Simulated scan of single mutants.
Amino acid sequence: MYLKRTIAILLSVLISGMSAMAQTTADTISTPQKYRHKTFFRVVGRTLGRFIRNFSEVDTNYIEPQKFNYTAMVQNTNTYEIYRIATTMGNDFTFAPLPTFKLGPYLGWRWIFLGYTFDLKNINSGDKRTEFDLSIYSSQLGVDLFYRKTGNDYKISKAQLDTEGKINTRPLNGMNYDGISVSIKGFNMYYIFNHKRFSYPAAFSQSTIQRKSCGSALCGIGYTRHSLSVDWEKLYNIVAENLGEETAERYMDPELKFKKINYTDISLSGGYGYNWVFARNWLAAASLSLALGYKSSSSDTNHSTFTFKDFSFHNFNIDGVGRFGIVWNNMRWYYGANAIIHTYNYHKSKFSTNNIFGSLNIYVGVNFGRMK
């Protein structure tokens, strides 16, 4: 009886010891794994946090960082656009739609600014003009996504039929012409070198305040897809009705008979911007960038995709963008105006187009949701 009890006690101790050893071994094995997982996520989190802080790091002697998470704004946008089409035979037409008057709301969260404006002037006219913009700003980088589609209210603002300009084309000035349609979509991305002291967002998204005057060099890349459609028969008839059938038949260039042209523009840009703080909470800003763009149209090649055989130095053209603004901002409230002008050029051996469009924005807004 005593022997059986002793054996039972020994077996119990042995089983308990083995169980404890197994648990210790399991803890010993699992602890490093848990530790490694915790360390990995901690390192990733710290790295990401450091990247975000460095991405928006500024010299507070020059720039006052944003103290609010959100912004709401109402903006009036007035746009102007001209489109010039010229041929080597001397046809040179400049078209311009009536200026638009748009009004719309914008909402922003830190780097992202999104809005949509409505054309109040042509709201019931059936005009199909649309515009969409999405801008993402930080101290170092900026991205603009855009989509523009013109309407049908173009007028002939200037015309020339011969290379010497001997033909009197004044009767064509101001004539309605709804045979041109243009759409542009794409993006621009730019880098600000002196981002710790120069704030591009302070001038154009009101997300920071420039406290001391400063400038910076800019560089960027861009991609745009252009679509141009011209109704040559309508244009020919307008010339014939106002200048005579004989003049139209003799001078109208058949190179304008194309129905539609699509071309892609890939560009590298460089420029300079300057922010001038001329009074407390006041800022005047100006920047100019020139872009070397390579333009490839669907008529350049018979291939379905671009190859190096299609490359031509004649496809390089100079584009540009200018930005000018003035703003008052005390961090809670802000108001101001800015003007943005874009130019695109496309030249072929017998045909060229120049597109210039700009907008004047007048806005008032408020920031809210103070950061903790």
Rank of each mutant, 00 (worst) to 15 (best):
P105R: 10
P105K: 06
P105H: 07
Y106Q: 09
L107E: 14
L107C: 13
L107N: 14
L107H: 15
G108Q: 06
G108H: 03
G108A: 14
G108M: 05
W109G: 10
W109Y: 15
R110T: 11
W111I: 10
I112S: 03
I112F: 04
F113A: 01
L114I: 01
L114K: 04
Y116C: 04
Y116T: 04
T117I: 06
T117W: 03
F118D: 12
F118T: 12
D119T: 08
K121C: 10
K121D: 12
N122A: 14
N122L: 14
N122T: 12
I123R: 15
N124P: 08
N124T: 10
N124L: 14
N124Y: 10
N124V: 15
S125E: 11
S125N: 10
G126E: 06
K128L: 05
K128N: 09
E131N: 02
D133R: 03
L134Y: 00
S135V: 01
S139F: 03
S139L: 15
Q140F: 05
Q140G: 14
V143Q: 00
D144V: 00
L145N: 01
L145R: 00
L145T: 01
F146K: 00
Y147W: 08
R148Y: 07
T150V: 06
G151P: 07
G151Q: 09
N152I: 07
N152K: 09
N152S: 15
D153N: 15
D153R: 06
Y154E: 09
Y154H: 09
Y154K: 07
K155S: 09
K155F: 07
K155W: 04
S157M: 12
S157D: 13
S157V: 13
K158R: 14
A159E: 03
Q160G: 08
Q160T: 06
Q160K: 05
L161N: 02
D162R: 04
D162L: 12
D162K: 02
T163F: 13
E164K: 12
E164W: 09
E164T: 15
K166N: 15
T169P: 07
T169H: 04
R170V: 07
N173G: 09
G174D: 15
M175K: 14
N176Q: 11
N176I: 12
Y177H: 10
Y177R: 05
Y177N: 05
D178V: 10
G179Y: 00
G179P: 06
G179Q: 11
G179D: 08
I180Y: 02
S181H: 13
